[in-house]
Amino acid sequence: MEDKTFERIEAYLSGELSQEAKTAFEANIQADPSLAEEVALQRDTHQLLALGNQLTYKDKLKAIDSEMRANATVRPLFGNARMWLAAAAVLIAVSVLLWNLSIPGGNSYMNEFSAYPDLTSMRNDTLDDLKTGMIAYSNEKYDIAESYLSKYLNENPDQGFVHFYLGNTYMALNQASKAVDEFRQVESPKWKQPADWYLALALGASEQKEEAQQLLKRIASDNDHAYKEQAEELLK
């Protein structure tokens, strides 16, 4: 079948034809049984994908479920409420100290930072260091995430996306220069664009502002970069 017919059917099934074009196309379908069969076949193919989506959603829900349950079982491993209160007290003290040490008005790069969501949707149920680290990360327990993700990377240094999340963890812990080292190790195309943006923030927050600016300019001038607008905004 010609590409043109295929694309016309796609546009028809996706509701992209104007009312006039749609009526004309439907008249063609009525008059041409072979076209009618092609439309029916293509509609079935779309329907097959809709069924495939159900399987994908089910996988994702199972992953969410096992994460929820792993989460419920991980918590007790990290001690009781008293330990958390003590940890919180230390964290507050450290935050106050860092706040007092920070430059007046704060660091605009750090103000831009918000931790990247966990998109790893890990599907296995084994509670390894990576999974435990990511659960802690999702729950904003960055000190725990740091220890597990670092441990995992010691054994699996080539996992770019883990460097990406460890970098985010360091940013959340206000350790921007360590974050820089992690973001520099992300090479996978899937994670490269967010890693560029976070690297720029980490550089800026660790007072390497010249390099941060250069990177932001590169992001801002790249029309296909997902963080183009944010980079433009920060450069203003």
């Binding site: 293509q42 329907q47 097959l48």
Partner: peptide
């Protein structure tokens, strides 16, 4: 997407069982 959709369409064309299964579902 168009390239892959054509490929899948041909697989559906050659598989009456899957078409029946889709029709049963619909």
């Amino acid at each position: 997407k168009n390239h892959c959709m054509k490929e899948l369409k041909e697989k559906v064309r050659n598989n009456p069982h899957i078409r029946q299964l889709i029709h049963d579902w619909v």
